[in-house]
């Protein structure tokens, strides 16, 4: 009896979830399929799902006109530096805010919270003027530094680390471990999944960032992928949809792979912090 009810519930649930999934991914399916269509077919009305005449022309054109390895490498360098930096810096700060008592802790936390709430556009111009006065325009440092210590990551890390039981840390202290040792040996291992989460979110933000790299990179050799793609996909008076779609696919793919691989940790990271 119970079994059958579960079975029916499972069928209903799967139906609903699959319908939801269809809605969520339909735009992507259409995007991927359309990236193999010629320019004429992309614009055809009514639109087609399957490419009538599949072609790699969009990708070929994209890779011919774009120094793809260069921009890809730049994007990876920036995203990896930003991600690693944030993981180290923000987890340490998160630990301090969550578990240590020190002068100015509250003030720092309020500043972090406050910064979450300032619209990014407000600081854009002063930030650029600052970076140019530091002589960092068109350098990786200029691309990376302003995003190396993001308030939102400190906030997330603090929330995760708060839920680590104090007893655990206390017993280590009794054993004579210093705070750095505790952070390195106990806190970081327990926050592994949390680090995966913060890492993915940070990588994503950096990977998709457009305006900052556009402004900081003054020569092509420092362009990241989104900046480079914007060069060729959007004309002044006309959009080449086929190219734009192919470009979108190339930019989404690496993120998708990373997320698919790490998704298990990603979800666990948001919840489990030492609650084993």
């Amino acid at each position: 009896m119970k079994r059958r009810r579960d079975r029916n519930a499972a069928i209903v649930l799967h139906t609903v979830l699959i319908a939801g999934l269809a809605i969520m991914i339909a735009p992507f399916v259409w995007m991927v399929l359309s990236s193999f269509k010629g320019e004429g077919e992309v614009r055809r009305t009514p639109p087609t799902w399957l490419p009538a005449d599949p072609t790699l022309a969009n990708y070929r054109e994209l890779f011919e006109r774009l120094d793809f390895p260069l921009y890809f490498t730049n994007s990876v360098i920036v995203a990896v530096l930003v991600t690693v930096g944030n993981l180290l810096i923000c987890s340490a700060t998160g630990y301090a805010l969550a578990k240590l008592r020190f002068l100015g802790r509250r003030a720092l936390f309020v500043l972090v919270l406050g910064n979450l709430m300032v619209p990014p556009m407000a600081t854009f111009v002063p930030q650029f003027v600052l970076v140019s006065n530091l002589g960092l325009v068109n350098t990786f440092a200029g691309l990376v530094l302003p995003n190396l210590a993001l308030a939102v990551n400190v906030f997330l890390m603090r929330q995760f680390i708060l839920s680590i039981p104090d007893d655990l840390l206390e017993s280590a202290r009794v054993d004579g471990a210093g705070e750095w040792r505790i952070y390195w040996r106990i806190v970081l291992p327990l926050t592994g999944p949390a680090l995966a989460t913060v890492g993915i979110l940070t990588f994503l933000g950096s990977w998709n960032n457009f305006l900052w790299p556009l402004v900081v990179a003054t020569t092509e050799d420092k362009y990241t992928l989104p900046v480079a793609l914007a060069l060729y996909s959007v004309g002044q008076n006309q959009t080449q949809y086929g190219l734009l779609l192919a470009g979108s696919v190339t930019i989404i793919l690496p993120i998708l792979v990373i997320f698919a691989v790490l998704q298990r940790h990603f979800v666990r990271g948001i919840a489990t912090t030492g609650l084993k």
Partner: peptide, 12 residues
């Protein structure tokens, strides 16, 4: 020559 995208060119 550094090509820049029209999108964002004004801000740049």
């Amino acid at each position: 020559v550094t090509p820049i995208p029209w999108d964002g060119a004004h801000d740049k």
